[in-house]
């Protein structure tokens, strides 16, 4: 069944179509939610809310652009609504004290998905949100600032701090790799 048939069935409110859509997209969307949430339980809640919104707003999908991208945006927004208050508490407005060491290709090639997820989940909540939005979803700092209701400079700061944090973690992995 094509995505278009599936969407039309869902718009009519047919449960069988909704279930098929959920079955098709929920693993990927759960992956998205896990990146944004502090715990698995919270990610389940966000996934649940996100899919309820998807079914509710299905008739607003214009069949322009990727359907997966559309669902993903809804999931990201659900996660943000769930989290942005926490983020505001972490708001930082300075760019000082951040260095930018070069990336080691050797490390990246050895990192698996699970390792990347572990690294992301070790980030403080505010950094995690901005890093996910910027580095993985491809949002600009301006868009992030609007979404999270923070200043654009704050988004940049959060992102650079997240990178610094990840850099340190990657260095440790690199040292361990060289010992082996």
């Amino acid at each position: 069944m094509s995505d278009e048939e599936l969407i039309k069935g869902c718009i009519k409110g047919k449960d069988a179509f909704q279930y098929e859509l959920y079955r098709r997209y929920s693993p990927k969307m759960f992956g998205v939610c896990l990146r944004y949430c502090a715990s698995r339980e919270e990610a389940e809640d966000v996934l649940q809310d996100g899919f309820v919104k998807v079914f509710k707003k299905m008739d607003t999908f214009k069949f322009q652009g990727s359907f997966e991208g559309w669902i993903r945006r809804i999931m990201v927004h659900s996660a943000i609504r769930n989290k942005y208050i926490t983020l505001r508490a972490h708001e930082v407005n300075t760019l000082e004290g951040i260095d930018h060491p070069a990336m080691d290709e050797k490390i990246t090639s050895k990192l698996m998905m699970m390792d990347l997820m572990k690294l992301i989940n070790e980030l403080p909540q505010g950094y995690k949100m901005v890093f996910n939005l910027y580095a993985v979803e491809g949002y600009s700092h301006k868009e992030i600032a609007e979404l999270l209701e923070i200043q654009e400079a704050t988004s940049r700061t959060q992102y650079l701090r997240a990178r610094q944090f990840l850099r340190e973690k990657l260095d440790k992995i690199q040292k361990n790799e060289s010992r082996i």
């Binding site: 693993p27 990927k28 759960f30 992956g31 389940e44 990246t108 998905m113 990347l116 992301i120 993985v136």
Partner: peptide, 13 residues
């Protein structure tokens, strides 16, 4: 690295 690594990250709920 993160885009390629995590965009297709899937976990069955």
């Amino acid at each position: 690295m993160f885009q390629e690594g995590l965009q297709n990250y899937e976990v069955t709920p």
